[in-house]
């Protein structure tokens, strides 16, 4: 097994370093956007969520080896459906529980 592993693992962990830098940059960008109050609330929220989604991709591809599998990549399929349902749960709950703006917390 030695050989197969080292075949893909180069001498230096470039991918990891790039991933790390990217994740720090994305985090800092969101941080700055919020604390500097550069944009309106809605824009800010949309942008920081998008930055978060990019972070997921960084983790998945640079660290979690999402592309690796033996045979069909079932975990990726399940993960995609999972993300759909996450949106349904979180988005759906907020939508439902807002009661069309009739109920104020």
């Amino acid at each position: 097994m030695e050989s197969t592993h080292s075949a893909h693992a180069g001498r230096f962990p470039w991918a990891h370093i790039v991933g790390y830098i990217l994740s720090l940059v994305l985090t800092a960008a969101a941080f700055w956007l919020v604390l500097a109050h550069k944009a309106g609330l809605a824009t800010t929220l949309v942008v920081i969520v998008l930055l978060g989604v990019l972070q997921i991709l960084v983790q998945l591809f640079f660290f979690m080896h999402i592309t690796e599998s033996d045979g069909p990549a079932w975990h990726t399929v399940m993960l995609l459906v999972g993300f759909l349902f996450v949106v349904a749960i979180v988005g759906g709950s907020i939508w439902i529980m807002s009661f069309g703006g009739q109920v104020v917390a």
Partner: peptide, 12 residues
């Protein structure tokens, strides 16, 4: 980005 290598290559 890492190449597709499964953790245990002992399979056929």
């Amino acid at each position: 980005m890492s190449v597709a290598v499964h953790p245990n290559p002992s399979h056929g």
